[in-house]
Amino acid sequence: MYDIIVCAIDGSELSNKALKQALALAAKTGGKITAVTVTEPSVIVSPGAEMMMIDTSEIIANLDAAKAESAKTTLAEAEALASATGATIAKLHVANSTAADGILHAAKEIKADLIVMGSHGRRGLGRLLLGSQAAEVLSHSDLPVLIVK
Rank of each mutant, 00 (worst) to 15 (best):
Y2G: 01
I5T: 00
I9V: 15
D10G: 07
D10R: 03
D10C: 07
D10M: 08
N16W: 11
L19K: 06
L19E: 02
Q21S: 11
A22W: 12
L23T: 00
A24I: 06
L25K: 07
A27N: 14
A27W: 01
A27T: 08
T29A: 05
G30S: 02
G30Q: 03
G30L: 01
G31E: 04
G31K: 02
I33A: 06
T34H: 09
A35W: 06
A35C: 15
V38T: 01
T39D: 03
E40L: 10
E40M: 06
E40D: 13
P41R: 09
P41C: 12
P41E: 13
V43R: 11
I44T: 05
V45H: 11
V45R: 12
A49H: 12
E50P: 05
M52L: 15
T56A: 13
S57E: 12
I59Y: 12
I60T: 00
N62A: 15
L63A: 09
L63Y: 11
D64T: 08
A65C: 04
A65L: 14
A65G: 07
A65K: 15
A66H: 12
K67F: 08
A71S: 10
A78S: 13
A78E: 01
A78H: 06
E79R: 12
L81K: 05
A84H: 08
A87H: 14
A87M: 13
I89K: 04
I89E: 01
A90Q: 14
K91C: 15
K91P: 00
L92P: 01
H93N: 01
H93R: 00
V94S: 03
A95Y: 07
T98V: 00
A99W: 05
A99Y: 04
A100W: 10
I103G: 02
A107C: 03
D113R: 08
V116Q: 03
G118Y: 01
G118K: 02
G121S: 02
G124Q: 04
R127N: 09
R127H: 12
R127K: 14
L129P: 09
L130H: 15
L130W: 09
S132C: 04
S132K: 07
S132D: 07
Q133E: 15
V137G: 07
V137T: 05
H140G: 07
S141N: 07
D142S: 15
L143F: 04
V145L: 02
L146M: 14
